[in-house]
Design a protein around this nucleic acid. Structure first.
Length: 830
RNA sequence: GCCGAAGUGGCGGAACAGGCAGACGCGCACGACUCAAAAUCGUGUUCCGUAAGGAGUGUGGGUUCGAUUCCCACCUUCGGCACCA
């Protein structure tokens, strides 16, 4: 029967073509139906779609299809995050223009994406490198600037020497502080750069109450933002009475401050340094500056520092305390200066011991009467009661942070009443460094004039186009800076000659709003069409990798909130539900990489097995949120499943002649129907929970049952027809092509299966009428008893007691206790 | 050091609210079909034991009639943060 052999290539191409021709996946506003905006993270056009893209996108597609079958008007768009450094590297290496390289890759990847058979609405495609796209990226920059949320500042920033550009704090990873893209350790440079005020939203970004995001991501973001509650306190220099502001989480230990430490870069260092100490201080500053961040921030390093010869006055008790400089105090956190309380801080303790400074305990530990003794060996961090602290002596100290700790609350109140400090919150989060010294990105639309400083390019002149005629220097410098004429322009204020900013924006800015451009990629009067926005936003389901937790997923939330405050968007969050996929590892259980040679190419798999099978295996082989190792033998299971589905629908039944009576056949049909509806219930639940692996296994199980039922003579019955119809619809989101073919060609049902409603569970049919109850004696399984599902507890109990296994292991003793769990189990305790 | 996730057969994994551990699949073994092989179909497959039986979800304890599931301590792996004041 060659004409009924499963030819995946033919079937998949045929339906993809028809779906596209019919616009089956066009999503248009329909006020009569509830909307569902399903979004999966857009790819960077690196050249080839890899298995990780398939792993992220096909289950997302299946879920979107499931929602569509459940009556939602689903938008599932796709596009390309098309600016970025690899395009420039290709230009330097192979002499191809980044634009050409990028757009050729997009062309190729678009084709690969289409081979998935996903329900992407290609009419919504957006490409961030298109001038009509980056025009609006630039427009957003200008709006942020106008609202005070974009500013330029000279500061020490992270520089990747390989990528030849600055990076945002979020893009520097790991212990060795390497570049997120290329892995090169970054260095510090003092540069004038553009920033967005992400810190302004720190508190709001900590609030996840209105979104359904994985705990993991929420924790990562919370830690990243790093909120600490405490107080800011003003100390005074002994000479000159200058303010020294410090931040502390432990204002209750102020009375124990026996010295102060400045970061070597602190602006007051020169002022407080005594002439006699000048040389020593300068030498230390230089030595600190030479160190890399990694050396400097190594926690196990012996403490170093020098005395400045200057003193400060502790505002709570007037004590005169020495000021030191040490590299363990970082200029980039807090104010760059600390009060040192060696008795109750490990670092200060180590420093005080080394340089022989006094250690004054101000907390007596609970249950001890000697506070001095408690700090003889190490700093004391736990609860207790305040001592040596003047007006606050006797206040109890617990383990809570901030005002929840009575001692901290008392200290804050006290310093505020004396006007020497106030309650304060500090964050680890920094403002988003947005400047990139690269060519292939959206030019920052700012113009510098000698007379009028920085001003935005006039909005009616957007986009500020990237010039095509650029030259590549092997040094890796941005060609934009070296372009002879591009930067020359007129000042928007006075019209005199002025220069453009030659830096481009971080590509993460372009991807912070792509979900908005998808709404109306061809819209010219604004970044998006408001009618589309009002209907589709916010994104209902967002899927993608966890690696973006503290980059894109923070940036896009910030962006949405900033736009909201400028009146551009509404609502507080852009994406309501987030789900992360895990990673597909190589067959050697290692991360896939070209150098390891363990990369799996989806194109080859599709050619060999077909997209439906690849999709099925990707959904089946591991928990989606966990990922796991690829197994090229394992995919055979999915190959067989898909083929067995095909065979079941395209061949006639071979009836087992042993089944003769109507009664027996009725039982077969009833059992089949039960299994069908039980499976439907499970599959529905699992789709809602993003548990794709058990969807496929449930469908496999049902298929096995259907083969048995067919052999037992169920074919031709109403129950059989129902089973076939429900089976295909349940399978359709997983394997869109084969199900369409079987639905239309073999069941003769109306095109398209993807427009059919999701089947309804018949609870009555799904109910078991007989159940097997395990019988335990003292917790060990000894027998089983089959009873009607509605049997009363007492009857289950007596049936269990009567079983052979129960009798044997009770050894004639009377049961002490019999536990009957309804519908589950009986445990006899003797 | 701190925070988080995970440890289940030869392998990937399942167990939805504390109730039959190992669903589903890979692999393997045996059988059917075949001259033969592949494909396909069927049966079996946690370990020890011939068996009766016993053990078993990283380790050790605990709660419970009953624990992969809850609690405590620890070990290992992975991810994040880290002199953050």
């Amino acid at each position: 029967m060659t004409d009924t052999a499963y030819n995946h290539a033919k079937i998949e191409k045929k339906w993809q073509k028809k779906w596209e021709a019919d616009g089956l996946y066009r999503s248009v506003i329909d006020e009569n139906r509830p909307k569902h905006y399903a979004l999966t993270m857009l790819p960077y056009p690196s050249g080839d779609l890899h298995i990780g893209h398939w792993y992220a996108m096909t289950p997302s597609d299946a879920h979107a299809r499931f929602m569509r079958m459940n009556g939602y008007n689903v938008l599932f768009p796709m596009g390309f995050d098309a600016f970025g450094l690899p395009a420039e590297n290709a230009a330097v290496k192979h002499g191809i223009h980044p634009k050409e390289w990028t757009y050729a890759n997009i062309e190729r990847m678009r084709g690969q994406l289409k081979s998935m058979g996903a329900m992407f609405d290609w009419k919504r495609e957006a490409v961030s490198a298109d001038p009509e796209y980056y025009r609006w990226s630039q427009w957003f920059f200008i709006q942020l600037y106008k609202h005070g949320m974009a500013y330029r500042k000279m500061s020490p920033v992270d520089w990747c020497p390989n990528c030849n550009t600055t990076l945002a704090r979020e893009q520097v990873w790991g212990d060795d502080r390497h570049c997120e893209r290329c892995g090169t350790p970054v260095i510090k440079k003092d540069l004038d750069q553009w920033f967005f005020t992400t810190t302004q939203y720190a508190d709001e970004l900590l609030d996840f109450s209105s979104i359904d995001w994985p705990e993991r991501v929420r924790t990562l973001q919370t830690n990243w933002i790093g909120r600490s509650e405490g107080a800011s306190v003003i100390f005074k220099t002994e000479v000159g009475n200058h303010d020294i502001e410090i931040f502390t989480t432990r204002p209750d230990t102020l009375w124990g401050a026996t010295f102060m430490v400045f970061s070597p870069e602190h602006p007051l260092v020169d002022l407080v340094t005594a002439p006699a100490k000048k040389a020593e201080v300068e030498a230390y500053k230089e030595q600190a500056a030479r160190q890399t961040d990694i050396e400097r921030e190594a926690t196990d390093k012996e403490k170093t520092g020098v005395f400045t010869g200057g003193y400060a006055i502790n505002p709570v008790n007037g004590a005169k305390i020495p000021i030191w400089i040490a590299d363990y105090v970082l200029m980039s956190y807090g104010t760059g200066a600390i009060m040192a309380v060696p008795a109750h801080d490990e670092r200060d303790y180590a420093f005080a011991r080394k340089f022989e400074m006094p250690i004054v305990p101000v907390i007596r530990p609970t249950g001890q009467d000697d506070a001095e003794k408690a700090v003889a060996e190490a700093a004391y961090i736990g609860p207790g009661v305040m001592v040596n602290s003047g007006p606050l002596n006797g206040t109890s100290v617990n383990d809570e942070k901030g005002r929840k700790n009575p001692s901290i609350a008392a200290a804050i109140d006290w310093i505020e009443s004396r006007g020497v400090g106030k309650e304060a919150v500090n964050y680890r989060l920094r403002d988003w460094l947005i400047s990139r010294q690269r060519y292939w990105g959206a030019p920052i639309p700012m113009i510098y004039c000698e007379q009028h400083g920085w001003n935005p390019a006039p909005e009616d002149q957007l986009p500020v186009l990237l010039p095509d005629d650029v030259e590549w220097k092997p040094t890796g410098e941005s060609p934009l800076k070296l372009h002879p004429t591009w930067k020359n322009t007129a000042c928007p204020v006075c019209g005199e000659p002025a220069t453009r900013e030659t830096d481009t924006v971080d590509t993460f800015m372009c991807s912070s709003w792509y979900h908005l451009r998808y709404l109306s990629p061809d819209y010219h009067d604004g970044p998006f069409d408001e009618a589309e926005y009002n209907y589709w936003m916010p994104v209902d389901t967002y899927t993608g990798g966890i690696e973006h937790a503290t980059m894109h997923l923070i940036y896009t939330r910030f962006f949405h909130k900033a736009l909201r405050d400028m009146g551009v968007t509404e609502g507080h969050e852009p994406m309501l539900q987030l789900r992360n996929q895990g990673m597909v590892l190589g067959e050697d259980h290692e991360k896939m990489s070209k150098s390891r040679g363990n990369v799996i190419a989806p194109d080859e798999l599709v050619e060999r097995y077909g997209a439906d099978t690849v999709r099925a295996y990707l959904m089946f082989f591991a928990r989606w949120d966990m990922g796991g190792p690829w197994n090229s033998q394992g995919i055979e299971g999915s190959v067989r499943w898909v083929r067995r589905v095909w065979t079941l629908f395209t061949t006639d039944s071979v009836t087992d002649s042993r089944i003769k009576t109507d009664i027996a056949l009725d039982e077969v049909k009833r059992t089949l129907r039960r299994k069908v509806h039980q499976t439907l219930k499970k599959v529905t639940r699992d789709f809602e929970a993003f548990e794709f692996n058990t969807i496929v296994s449930a469908l496999m199980e049902l298929l096995n049952e259907m083969y048995k039922a067919r052999e037992a003579g169920a074919a031709g019955s109403d129950e059989w027809a129902e089973a076939l119809g429900i089976y295909l619809r349940m399978m359709a989101p997983v394997c869109p092509h084969i199900t369409e073919e079987l639905w239309v060609k073999h069941l003769g049902k109306p095109y398209s299966i993807h427009q059919q409603p999701w089947p309804k569970v018949d609870e009555e049919a799904a109910r078991e009428d007989e159940i097997t109850i395990p019988v335990q004696v003292n917790g060990k399984l000894r027998d089983r008893v089959v009873v009607p599902a509605d049997t009363r507890e007492e009857d289950v109990k007596s049936a269990a007691l009567a079983t052979e296994g129960a009798q044997k292991y009770m050894e004639g003793k009377p049961p002490k206790k019999v536990i009957v769990v309804r519908g589950k189990l009986v445990n006899i305790v003797v």
